[in-house]
Design a protein around this nucleic acid. Structure first.
Length: 550
RNA sequence: GUCCUCAUAGUUCAAUGGAUAGAACAGGAGACUUCUAAGCUCUUGAUGGAGGUUCGAUUCCUCCUGAGGACACCA
C-alpha cells in the first residue's frame, strides 16, 4: 500500500514536470488524525502536486485531503480493511512474509560464548537478538544459516584449565568449570608466577603436548557444550553449523603468514594489521609467540564459513557493542585479503550491555548473574502465575512465559543501546511484556472457540460501516516486518505487536464476539482471528512462543 | 590523549527532519451479575546546557556537561 501511494505521487509529480522531489509517506502519528497514510509531498514539492493529480489514481484510496501545513492525508476504502483481514487469514503462517530477499543467502553468527565460562547475560542478549534478526531475514525471503562460533581455545580456556588443575575441580561439573575460571583469572591478574604458568598452559594447549591438560580441556568443552545446547534449545535456537576457534586458528595463521608484507606487517615480533590506512587502529593478528589472537582466528572463521556456505551473499556477526571498532578493523583486513568479497556484504550488529536496575554486575568480581540463573528466576515467577492459568501443561507454559518475558524485555528497545534490566518489572508480567502478548493470543483462541460453539463463524462478508481501530493496525504488519529487517531492528515488531494487542484488548472490552444474535459477530470474529495470526507470526519473529491457553 | 556510542516523564523504553513528543511501570480515580482481571477506562508528569542549519529539529552540525566503550600481542 505504501509503495502504491509512493508510486502514484511520484507519477503525479512527473506529470507536473517536478521529478526528484523528496517526500515522506507514512502513518500519521497524531492521535486525532484519522487518516490512514499521510505524505508531506505538498510541502516538499512546494504544493505543486496537490491532491488534484492524485485523486482517484490509487486503488484502495477513497479520498485524499490537503491538511494543515502542506500535508496530504489518504483515506482508504472501507473494503480494503476487510480484504486485508481475509488475506491474512488465507495466508496463515505466511502472513507478513515477503520475497524481497529471495536471492540472498545470509550467514548470521551469534551467541558465540566462551566455553568454560558460565553463559553470561551478554551471550543471552546476543542469542535473543541474533535469533530475531535471523527470523526477520527469513520473513523477508532470504535463506539463512545460523552459525555459532564458540571459543574453545585461548587464554580464557588456559585460565580455566589451570584453575581446574589447581582446584582439582571436576571437569564434568559446569559449576566447577565456572569456579576454575574465576580462580585462574584472579591468579592471572594478581600473581606473576601463576600468570607465567597460565601462559605456558596456553601454549601447551595449542601444541597439545600435555595429555593431562588436553584431557581437562576436552572434558570441559564437552560439559560446556552440553549446557550451551540445552539453553539454546530452550531459547529456540538450533544452529546450522558450529565453527570452533580451535579449528579456525590454524587456517587464520596460514592466511596471515601468506599475506605478511602484503597486508600484514611485523612489529615487535608480532604480526599486525595497520588499520590506520583505513582510518582505524592497529591490531595484532599473531602474537610474538606466533600464536593466533582473536583477530587471526576470526579470519580463519571467515574462511571456514565461506567453504561451508560458498553461495553466501551477506555475512553478519552479532556481538557486544564493545567490539564495534574491532570489527571495523577485521572487515578492513578481510576485504584486503580476499578481493572477491568486494561484492558481498559484511556486517556487524552490536548489541548493548545489559545491567540490572539493582546494581551493576561484573563477571570478574564473581558477582555474576549467569544466563541460566536469570532464566531460572524468571521461571520461578512464571510458574506461580501459570499455576493459576488454564493450561494443561504447566511446565511448558512456565518455560514459554519465562522466555517470553526475558526476550520481550530485550527486544523492546533499539538494538545496540545498553539495556537496563528491571527484574521486578520483567517478573511482574503486567503491562508491556511478552506475557501480555501471549495472553492476548490465548484470549483470542478462547473467544474464537466460544464463538464457534455459539455458531459464529469468522467472515468478512458483512462489515460494519466503520472499520474498528484494530483493523487499521492489522494490515500494517507486512510493512513492519520490512522496516524491522531494513533497520535490523526487531523492536519495531515488538512495539507494533504491543500496540496491536492493546488496541485489540480495548476492542475486546467493548465488543462481544461470541454473540450469534449480532449480525456483525462473524466480522468481529474474523478481525479477532486476523489479530491472532498477526500476534502468532509476530511473536515467532521475536522468537517467542504463542501458547493457546494460559 | 585520540576515536566511537549514548543523554527524552519519578523509573524503563518509543518517536524514516513533520501535525498536539507516544507507551508501560510507579502515583491518583473508576467500570464490570456478559466471551480469560497476565485485561479495560480516565488522570498527574519529559526532550541535559548553549549556539547554528531549516518553513519546521528529540532527530542534522559545533561547543559544553555527564555516562559507557575502543585504542598491540585477552575474547
Amino acid at each position: 500500500m505504501e509503495t502504491e501511494i509512493r508510486t502514484a505521487i511520484a507519477n503525479a509529480l512527473k506529470t507536473l514536470g517536478t521529478e526528484g522531489v523528496d517526500f515522506v509517506v507514512g502513518h500519521p502519528t497524531d492521535k486525532n488524525t484519522v487518516a490512514d497514510y499521510f505524505s508531506n509531498v505538498a510541502m516538499a514539492a512546494a504544493k505543486i502536486a496537490g491532491e488534484a493529480g492524485l485523486q482517484g489514481k490509487i486503488e484502495s484510496v477513497e479520498r485524499i485531503e490537503v491538511a494543515g501545513p502542506g500535508f496530504l492525508n489518504f483515506y482508504l476504502r472501507r473494503d480494503f480493511f476487510g480484504e486485508k483481514i481475509t488475506a491474512a487469514r488465507t495466508n496463515g503462517e505466511t502472513w507478513g512474509q515477503n520475497k524481497s530477499l529471495i536471492h540472498e543467502e545470509v550467514l548470521v553468527e551469534y551467541t558465540s560464548p566462551n566455553l568454560f565460562k558460565p553463559l553470561h547475560i551478554g551471550n543471552l542478549v546476543g542469542n535473543i537478538i541474533g535469533e530475531s534478526v535471523t527470523r526477520l531475514f527469513e520473513y523477508n525471503g532470504a535463506t539463512v544459516k545460523r552459525l555459532n562460533y564458540p571459543s574453545d581455545i585461548g587464554l580464557t580456556v588456559a585460565k580455566a584449565v589451570w584453575g581446574l588443575k589447581k582446584t582439582a575441580g571436576d571437569p564434568t561439573d559446569i559449576n566447577a568449570l565456572g569456579e576454575a575460571y574465576k580462580v585462574g583469572n584472579d591468579a592471572y591478574e594478581q600473581d606473576e608466577i601463576a600468570k607465567a604458568e597460565i601462559v605456558r598452559v596456553n601454549e601447551s594447549l595449542y601444541a597439545e603436548d600435555d595429555s593431562e591438560l588436553v584431557a581437562l580441556r576436552e572434558q570441559g568443552i564437552a560439559t560446556s557444550k552440553t549446557k550451551l545446547n540445552a539453553i539454546c534449545k530452550r531459547l529456540g535456537t538450533t544452529f546450522d553449523a558450529e565453527i570452533f576457534e580451535s579449528e579456525a586458528g590454524p587456517t587464520g595463521v596460514e592466511i596471515v603468514k601468506k599475506n605478511v608484507s602484503k597486508v600484514f606487517d611485523e612489529s615487535d615480533g608480532a604480526i599486525v594489521y595497520r588499520g590506520e590506512k583505513a582510518g582505524l587502529h592497529t591490531r595484532v593478528f599473531l602474537n610474538s609467540k606466533g600464536l593466533p589472537t582473536y583477530e587471526a582466528k576470526d579470519l580463519g572463521n571467515f574462511v571456514k564459513k565461506q567453504s561451508l556456505f560458498p553461495n553466501w551473499t551477506t555475512s553478519i556477526v552479532v556481538t557486544g557493542n564493545e567490539q564495534t571498532e574491532y570489527f571495523k578493523v577485521l572487515y578492513a583486513a578481510i576485504r584486503e585479503v580476499f578481493i572477491d568479497v568486494a561484492e558481498k556484504k559484511l556486517e556487524h550488529i552490536p548489541t548493548g550491555f545489559l545491567t540490572l536496575t539493582t546494581g551493576k554486575m561484573s563477571s570478574r568480581k564473581g558477582n555474576v548473574l549467569t544466563g541460566e540463573s536469570l532464566l531460572a528466576e524468571m521461571e520461578e515467577s512464571a510458574r506461580e502465575k501459570a499455576a493459576e492459568s488454564r493450561t494443561d501443561n504447566l511446565e511448558e507454559l512456565t518455560e514459554q512465559v519465562a522466555v517470553a518475558a526475558l526476550k520481550y524485555q530485550i527486544l523492546k528497545q533499539a538494538v545496540g543501546t545498553n539495556i537496563v534490566f528491571d527484574k521486578e518489572r520483567a517478573l511482574s508480567f503486567e503491562g508491556d511484556s511478552g506475557p501480555y502478548l501471549q495472553y492476548t493470543h490465548a484470549r483470542i483462541m478462547s473467544v474464537l472457540k466460544k464463538a464457534a460453539e455459539a455458531g459464529v463463524e469468522p467472515s468478512t462478508e458483512l462489515p460494519p460501516p466503520t472499520p474498528y481501530a484494530v483493523e487499521k493496525l492489522i494490515y500494517q504488519f507486512p510493512e513492519v516486518i520490512a522496516t524491522a529487517l531494513r533497520e535490523r531492528a526487531p523492536h519495531h515488531v515488538t512495539g507494533y505487536l504491543t500496540e496491536l494487542a492493546s488496541v485489540f484488548n480495548s476492542f475486546y472490552a467493548t465488543e462481544t464476539i461470541a454473540d450469534p444474535s449480532d449480525k456483525f459477530a462473524p466480522y468481529k470474529a474474523a478481525v479477532a482471528d486476523a489479530v491472532r495470526l498477526t500476534l502468532k507470526n509476530g511473536l515467532f519473529v521475536l522468537g517467542i512462543r504463542a501458547p493457546e491457553r494460559m
